[in-house]
């Protein structure tokens, strides 16, 4: 049972991640807002206590690994990393600028705390499984967390991974699907007819945990606990999220990759600050 204090801390952390990500988008004026905002609560859980990490030693051998297979949500990850001290928060304002260490999609050779280069959908999942296999071979007790987009699950490579992980006993893998049901050209069902992602993973031999509200840190933490209990299988946690969650100008509009004006960003940040004040009251 997680304490109320801890939950409050994580909710505040999630709001801070959203604010920091919005500052990134504001600085460059455009970005993958929707899919970044939808996962900020997961980022808060992972980087706010779930993962065994040492920000002063990003390559620490004993660390838990995280692979952002939906690489376009890099800005949310960068926000969490900066707030945890992997690098200065000011660096967030260099997102996508020439020479930045924070490219649009995550890059393990540029950014402290990024474990694998991603961006071409489907590939991060395979590399995560290789990392998980490597950890097992090295007898490390690290967990390997990997985040998939729901639209990403249209890639065939995802289902090659779905076969591979249970077959190879990669019980140290805990995956997440950001199931916000929207992709660039419409809903998942409209674009390619993909549905029932959780059922599909279960059929492939995964331990599947369905999270009714994937933007609720309490439910996310509970799901991760349940995933760890199922020690005989890799786990896939289905996070039913809202694309653009917590960002006043992005919810309920096309938000995959959108322009962000300074006014919009400031307004959204003010709303998040007000939400934080409410939490602290």
């Amino acid at each position: 049972m997680v304490s109320k204090e801890k939950l409050k801390e994580l909710r505040l952390f999630a709001a801070d991640i959203r604010i920091a990500a919005l500052e990134e988008f504001k600085a460059i004026g455009v970005g993958h807002v929707g899919g970044s905002m939808s996962i900020c609560d997961l980022m808060a859980c992972l980087y706010g206590g779930v993962m065994r990490i040492d920000p002063s030693n990003p390559r620490w051998e004993q660390r838990d690994r995280f692979i952002m297979s939906k690489g376009h949500a890099g800005p949310a990850m960068y926000a969490a990393l900066a707030l945890r001290g992997y690098f200065d928060r000011e660096e967030l304002l260099t997102l996508n600028r020439p020479g930045t260490r924070l490219p649009s999609h995550t890059d393990c050779n540029r950014t402290p705390g990024v474990d694998m280069t991603t961006g071409s959908l489907g590939q991060g999942f395979s590399t995560a499984l290789g990392i998980a296999m490597g950890c097992k071979k090295k007898k490390l007790d690290s967990y390997v967390y990997v985040l998939l987009g729901d639209g990403e699950c249209e890639e065939g490579q995802i289902w090659e991974c779905a076969i591979f992980a249970p077959a190879k006993g990669l019980t140290n893998v805990i995956g997440f699907v950001d199931y916000n049901r929207l992709q660039i050209c419409g809903t998942l069902e409209e674009v390619a007819g993909l549905s029932g992602i959780g059922e599909k993973f279960a059929a492939f031999g995964w331990h599947v945990v369905d999270v009714a509200d994937g933007n609720d840190v309490e439910q996310i933490l509970e799901a991760i606990d349940r995933a760890k209990e199922a020690a005989d299988k890799p786990s896939m946690i289905i996070l039913n999220t809202k694309k653009g969650k917590g960002c006043s100008f992005a919810e309920d509009v096309f938000n995959h990759n959108m322009p962000v004006s300074a006014e919009q960003a400031e307004e959204a940040i003010a709303a998040l600050e007000a939400y934080k004040a409410g939490l602290m009251a």
Partner: peptide, 23 residues
């Protein structure tokens, strides 16, 4: 020595992940 099955894309990805861990 292990087989990845007829899934070349995953095989390359898995190999890259193993490489990241020093193999």
């Amino acid at each position: 020595i292990f087989d990845c099955g007829i899934a070349e894309s995953n095989m390359i990805g898995v190999a890259c992940g193993l490489s990241a861990e020093g193999f």
